[in-house]
Write a protein that binds this DNA or RNA. Structure first.
Lengths: 207, 207, 207, 207
DNA sequence: AATGAATGAGTTTTCATTCAT
DNA sequence: CATGAATGAAAACTCATTCAT
């Protein structure tokens, strides 16, 4: 409406993006406000016009960082609901693999948040909900498979946790040793093993 | 007779143990040398008699922290080789669950190391080898299952990675939300799903 | 208009002046950054905006301290070149005596630098050049005396060294025991003895 | 007398010698008690059996360091009193040159003491007396020359100061730039210039 | 006499945060 | 809005000194 649309939100985003890059490169502690300021092209003082403190930036980053991916994924899951769940899971996995390729550089940020979760209730609470969202998403998908007769009548919740654990665990292994395993391929292989365990086999001739 | 036995090694161990506790509670950065000193019951200066710097403590901790668990596990795997691999994996999983119960408090340390791995070559190299060791261990176990006709002729390596990913991923999920999932039970459930996918089924009558 | 003039150079000077005073009073080692900060009326942190470290201050001080005096002296020698060299040397000596009166308080700084020269190549190099400059200056003056027939055909270099040694040596003796000798008078007395040895005497046949 | 003669004094000397070497190499401040202990081959604790503190070592060193040279010189001057004073001074100068060659390495210690003299009354007092002793020695020598008709009736005290200043000043110049001047030769050259100014010349009428 | 482990006060340096311009 | 000079609290690390053995 106003001729000069609030530049505030834009600035805040710019700062967060700069913070992501810098934190990923140096870690939360090593990163100085000066580093972020330089990355975003503002003065150190300007950062304080948009964020109360370094911790406030880290706090905002938490949401920015984890929500993005989830929203992306949820949109994906909620869109195509036609095909077989097996196919949807395969697509989902490819999707996750793509995201992973994009995110590898920023994984140190995730790990720092996990570490902080151990001693900061708010961070833990946020991550808790984030993971819960994923589990719900996955659970719904798997339950659909069961309902449709694609999958055996397993505990959908436990299977969803397993799926989430695979994605997270692979992300860690891949992050530490990208040469040793191709995320995309390994994620698909792991998923197929899981599918083997999930799928109902009429007479079991399947591979 | 014994004119003051060398307490050096003992002190170094004591310091590492104190460091584990303190780092887990406060994080690497928040922990001051004074905190460790207090925890171990020595003066700050004394720490420097045994470790060149805070970083040196963290460096030693890396090995201390990750090697312990691996040695434990390897011993386990190499011992009992008689029974069915399925049973061995179930046992192994219970074993891991026990370890996890013990280690939860210290998981922030692991995450901090993962974060550091992103920017420190030496840490990354160490973790790389550590994870590789696990994969080899698991791979051998699974291959044994295949050789014995218990498992389908899957890619043992990929299955091992899947197993490792499950353990690691569950650890993360559990750490963030211990109420939402019982590690022991979920780990077993996840393993069973994996086993479903692995095991050869004559006519498939369901496990 | 003037959007905050650059105070950088000014601050650096202010800090050096405060450092001179403080170092002279307490010595390099005893002086804490806080002492300098207090003397200059800034915070400790501010010092680090202008100098990288305490050593950097000491390093800058070296030049500031020794160059000043030399420039002063050179200007003096290069100005008046008319009168007899004898008169010029007497004037020079009075000039040095004046400088000495001004500098006595700061002589501990000079001695610390001399001590450091023994173990620091850069400091030694700087002082080497500084002393060389003095020798050249004095040498030129004495050579002029020889050329004009005022002085005997002595080795001007050696005489210059002698002159420099007298100034430096007297400075030390005076610094340690100001009561025992009046610098101005003693410097003149010493110079006159030297002149006796330098000057050509009408009837003298001696070498 | 006692079968085990007091080893105390010997130890104290050994420590001082080690201190001289270490202080000369590292400076008073940089030198740690450990360094001295290592140099002397004792434990750090042992030093405290012989000296109350590091400062006590430095204090003892002051006397040890400056007295040695003086005693040496006094003995020399008081011995040969036969020949011409001119010859005695030449001999003395050669003697000083020899001492200088030996002492160059230790000169940083002298400079540190000079620096300290500016803020420590006791050190200043000691050096004052030390220099006074030299002046008296030199003065006596020069007065002898006057009495014997070798020298003009100059102020023997002022001439002695000049001589002392030459020795000290040359020492400094030589220490900073040993390549630029040969101490022995330059000291003799300087002395000869001084002698020119001192000696009575048959036909000379000048003051 | 001698050792060397332990202490802890003391200092440099860093950097999040503030604020006058 | 934006700047960047200034602040000062905080922490790693050092080392003279002590003391139990």
């Amino acid at each position: 409406m106003s001729p000069r649309p609030d530049v505030s939100e834009e600035r805040r985003s710019q700062i967060l993006e700069a913070a992501v890059k810098t934190f990923a490169r140096l870690g939360f502690q090593q990163t100085r406000m000066d580093d972020i300021a330089q990355e975003v092209g503002l003065s150190k003082g300007a950062l304080y016009l948009y964020y109360k403190s370094k911790d406030a930036i880290i706090g905002s980053l938490l949401k920015y960082f984890f929500s993005q991916e989830y929203n992306y994924l949820r949109a994906f899951v909620e869109t195509d609901q036609q095909g077989r769940v097996r196919e949807q899971l395969l697509l989902l996995t490819r999707h996750v693999a793509t995201a992973m390729a994009r995110m590898t550089r920023f994984m140190p940020i995730a790990f720092e948040f996990y570490a902080i979760a151990g001693r900061d209730k708010e961070v833990r609470q946020f991550l808790k909900e984030n993971f819960r969202d994923y589990r719900v998403l996955f659970s719904r998908l798997i339950q659909r498979g069961i309902d449709r007769g694609e999958f055996r009548a397993v505990d959908a919740g436990a299977a969803a946790v397993t799926l989430a654990a695979q994605y997270e665990g692979l992300a860690l292994l891949f992050f530490v040793d990208p040469q040793a395993l191709q995320y995309a391929e390994q994620a698909e292989a792991s998923l197929r093993l899981l599918l083997e365990g999930l799928e109902l086999r009429p007479s079991s001739t399947k591979s």
